[in-house]
Simulated scan of single mutants.
Amino acid sequence: MTRLRIRDAAPADNDLIAQWMIAMAWETEHKRLDPPTVHAGVAAGLADPAKARYFIAMREAETAGHETIAVPAGTLMLTREWSDWRNGEWWWIQSVYVAEEHRRQGVYDALHSHVAALAQATAGVIGLRLYVERGNASAQRTYRGQGMSDAGYDLFEQEFGRGAAGDGGAG
């Protein structure tokens, strides 16, 4: 029997999350990120809940000897945005990655459901948001399947070059 368990990420997850973020940037945007910058960024997020909160999906399976083993299958990062229009917080889903061998097995659904339940149980949280690459139709279908809809905004940015060279991506 296999099941998914969602847990808060810990500092010990830094290397894995950074590795997944580098892979995600390459797979989705063909961007090569600077590994030391990504490692430092993940470490800063893990160390400061005001910056970010990471979750790890663990795939648990029972071995023939009835021992339970758990392997990391995916991650999701939350950040917060204050809305004066609604007098509440939007929780932004970012830095989503599911390891290739665990895709299309409900990992993102489990992460999303976990975060949505936390958001609904937290006073002052008014909803969830995320952004997705325009050409990533597969991800868009997944997010629509979770009840999300196109909010009708385009994303603009002005980068100041303080991050890694060539890093203009979503992460």
Rank of each mutant, 00 (worst) to 15 (best):
L46M: 11
W85D: 13
L76N: 00
A70L: 09
A25W: 02
A50Q: 13
V42Y: 04
E67F: 09
W91A: 15
W85N: 06
Y54D: 12
A47Q: 10
V38P: 00
T37Y: 06
T63E: 09
A64Q: 11
T79A: 04
R80I: 06
T37R: 10
A43K: 08
A50W: 02
E29D: 11
M77V: 12
E67K: 14
F55C: 06
A23N: 10
A18Y: 00
I17E: 09
P35G: 09
G74N: 06
A64K: 08
G88M: 11
E67D: 15
W82L: 14
A44E: 09
A57C: 12
R53W: 04
W82Q: 13
K51G: 01
K31T: 01
L46P: 12
M24I: 05
R86I: 01
R80A: 15
D84C: 05
T68K: 14
V71Q: 10
A70G: 05
A44R: 14
T68Y: 03
I22M: 03
R86W: 02
A50P: 01
W26R: 14
F55S: 06
G65A: 06
I69N: 07
T63I: 06
K51Y: 08
A52I: 01
E27A: 09
H30M: 11
E29F: 07
I22R: 04
G65V: 01
W85E: 11
I17N: 12
K51E: 14
G65N: 03
G88F: 08
A40Y: 00
V71N: 03
A50S: 13
A57Y: 04
L46N: 01
G74I: 08
R32N: 12
V38G: 02
A23M: 05
T63G: 10
R86P: 00
M21P: 00
W91I: 15
E62F: 02
M24C: 14
Q94G: 13
W90D: 05
T75P: 01
V71L: 05
L76H: 02
E81R: 14
T28L: 13
H30S: 10
G88D: 13
A23Y: 05
S83W: 04
E60V: 12
V42L: 05
A64M: 07
T68L: 08
A43N: 03
E67H: 15
V42M: 05
G41F: 05
A73H: 04
W26S: 13
L33R: 03
I69W: 03
E29R: 11
E29A: 04
R59T: 07
T75F: 03
R53Q: 12
G41V: 07
E60H: 10
R80D: 04
P72Q: 14
F55G: 07
W26Q: 15
Q94N: 14
G88H: 08
R80H: 07
A43C: 05
A25F: 09
G88Q: 09
K51T: 11
T79C: 14
R80G: 08
I56R: 06
R53M: 10
P36S: 11
I22A: 09
K51D: 02
E62G: 01
P36G: 09
G41K: 04
A61L: 09
S83E: 10
T75D: 03
W82M: 15
A61K: 12
W92I: 15
W20A: 07
E81L: 08
I17V: 15
M21V: 14
A44S: 12
R86A: 12
I17M: 14
L46A: 09
D84M: 08
A50H: 06
W82G: 04
N87M: 15
